[in-house]
Design a protein around this nucleic acid. Structure first.
Lengths: 261, 261
DNA sequence: CACTGGCCCGTACGCCCTACGGAACCAGCA
DNA sequence: TGCTGGTTCCGTAGGGCGTACGGGCCAGTG
């Protein structure tokens, strides 16, 4: 029903812009009126409200009451704009609270990241999420510090943080996707399954997929209950943190950090 | 440098098509020449080779030596076509091997899924990945069966499978993204960092982000070594499975399955 | 005052998806 | 044999999109 892609801008250009935009941005001549920050803000607002599909240079320009091509004075292209939007979004994260145990901290970080993705669902549709902008590096440092001093090797620290972030990302993606489907089809998640169920029941040979059938029903009724996605998120997160715990215990009980991972 | 979006087709239509396409597809009159399967195959080939960005109805039609609009006789639109491509891709997975312990089986499943994503990187760019086609349900059933009979509740089984799949998805995404960046910029991953490093060194106040700086260097040199992404993938996977192990141990040691998750 | 360089943007090109209506084709029947 | 009506195919056209290009505007300088 709609297109499907996504790339990022030229990495070198984006990187330059990312860090240069820190400057006061006070240029020489003319009255700016426009600025990188204003463009990024408008684009983010649009993407938040209508999704990355609706983000077009034309519409951003309209929102700013400006000609489309004017944007290109500040931003090389759409890809680079998205790179800027991503790093700018990371600025919302708190990177100062370093209290609590490593487990509490990872827990807090996971929830904060999840909230961020839900506030800016379009972030999950960008290819990069890896371009080292000023705010991303602050985020990275903050997250690493949560698992520092536990006896883990550097590479293990990185892996651990990636593990937690990966979990958050994948669950957030699921949440956002199902909300998106709900919006598109005008149907609630439950309504959708109530519609699809009879259809599927006619098509699927239940005896061929007994486990799927059994679990599917149980999951369906569970989701229907008061328990929200939040409970499931936290449950899975605890599993992930249990896995980290095993590693931490192993490292802190005598075995020195190995050479690699 | 390129656009960025992605939606899926009308769920109801996709669902119907998904299951109908199982039929012999032998229609009544006229010579078909074209068919849903042929279209899906051509589209998949194109997306595999050039990415989801390059997938357009025009190009698929060209590849089939057919007018663009002819495709619409068999497929309602591009979104639904992508839904079909996704389920068709899942057909590659082996869903018969049920040997080994739950841990061995999840390990095998994780690697198989990872391979699939790397073979079909465009799958990571689709929004749905959740539309219950014939092959997806076979996959789901197969994966659930790996954690069946361990004392886990149904919802816990679902969460566990999601957990592993989420991990695989997020690491595959990282791998694919960095390969994509490499292709686009014509630079190797190492080359890229060698280029960016001096630039970043000038911009970033290392003392502000001591942990990130230290870990970044270690990770960089580790990646540079013979150790491949595969090692890191397996390491993280073991952490995830450790977390599952904790849950399994808890459930098999007397505590009955709880009401929820 | 003339100039220059940054800002702004109208036009145009090439690509995309797809609604619509008509052409080509062929099985079966009269 | 000739017709007919459903099927398959596709040309045209309309509305988006990103962005290359070149020109107009104006503040401040020399």
């Amino acid at each position: 029903m709609a297109p499907q892609n996504r790339k990022s801008g030229d990495p070198a250009r984006s990187l330059a812009l990312l860090w240069r935009s820190q400057e006061p941005a006070s240029r020489r001549r003319g009255k700016p009126g426009l600025s990188v920050d204003r463009i990024v803000a408008a684009a983010t607002e649009l993407a938040d409200a209508e999704g990355l599909d609706a983000l077009s240079m034309r519409r951003v320009a309209e929102a700013l009451d400006v000609g489309t091509m004017s944007l290109y004075t500040y931003v090389p292209g759409k890809g680079e704009l998205i790179d800027l939007m991503v790093d700018s979004a990371y600025a919302d994260l708190d990177t100062s609270d370093r209290s609590g145990t490593w487990r509490e901290r990872l827990h807090r970080i996971a929830h904060a990241n999840r909230d961020l993705y839900i506030r800016h669902p379009w972030m999950l549709q960008t290819v990069t999420m890896r371009l080292l902008g000023p705010h991303l590096i602050a985020k990275y440092d903050h997250e690493l510090s949560a698992v520092d001093g536990l006896g883990l090797s550097e590479v293990e620290m990185d892996s651990t943080v990636s593990l937690v972030n990966g979990y958050v990302e994948s669950t957030a993606r699921q949440t956002v996707n199902s909300e998106g489907l709900a919006r598109d089809s005008g149907m609630d998640d439950q309504q959708w399954w109530k519609t699809a169920d009879p259809l599927l029941a006619r098509l699927i040979d239940d005896s061929r997929y007994p486990t799927a059938a059994r679990v599917g029903v149980a999951v369906g009724t569970a989701h229907q209950a008061v328990y929200e996605a939040d409970h499931e998120f936290t449950f899975g997160l605890e599993r992930v943190l249990d896995g980290v715990q095993v590693l931490v215990d192993a490292r802190s009980s005598g075995v020195g950090a190995p050479g690699h991972a």
